[in-house]
């Protein structure tokens, strides 16, 4: 993480036990995905998690086999956690600032799939080159 200023202030906040709550929720969602195929997304930015909570959660979930980097305006880093079907998604701006952090419970995250409109455009471009 880039620290823009070196303020003499500790911003690490104490752990609140949120990580355990999220893990519990994830288990429920994963079961639902298996049984009905319904995907779910947890928006981490909207949860009152401290930085140590997040760290704890990330440590517990670990890293799996897939690691994807999207290069749109700014990068997005997406990896499957050690638990199959649980994906960790971080969207950054061009200057490396985190704008969204999600956990998606699905087989493939929505954003990775190619959009029909983009494919349509790709097709016309392909046709133009030949």
């Amino acid at each position: 993480m880039k620290t823009p200023l070196n303020l003499p202030i500790e911003i690490a906040a104490p752990s609140t036990g949120m990580a355990q709550a999220v893990l519990h929720e994830l288990a429920g969602h994963l079961q639902q995905l298996i049984e009905s195929g319904k995907t779910e997304v947890i928006d981490l930015t909207s949860l009152p998690m401290s930085s140590s909570d997040k760290q704890q959660l990330e440590t517990q979930l670990g890293k799996g086999e897939v690691d994807i980097t999207l290069t749109t305006i700014g990068e997005s880093r997406i990896f499957e956690t050690a638990y199959s079907g649980i994906w960790w998604i971080r969207h950054y701006t061009a200057d490396q600032h985190l704008i969204a952090e999600l956990i998606e419970i699905c087989s493939v995250p929505q954003i990775i799939k190619s959009h029909p409109a983009d494919m349509q455009q790709a097709l016309s471009r392909l046709k133009n080159t030949h």
Binding site: D43, S46, H91, A100, L102, I111
Partner: peptide
């Protein structure tokens, strides 16, 4: 701008 990029934008706003 790709739709994927736009989706990323909307995700961040939605978040």
């Amino acid at each position: 701008i790709s739709r994927r990029t736009f989706l990323k934008f909307c995700t961040s706003i939605g978040s």
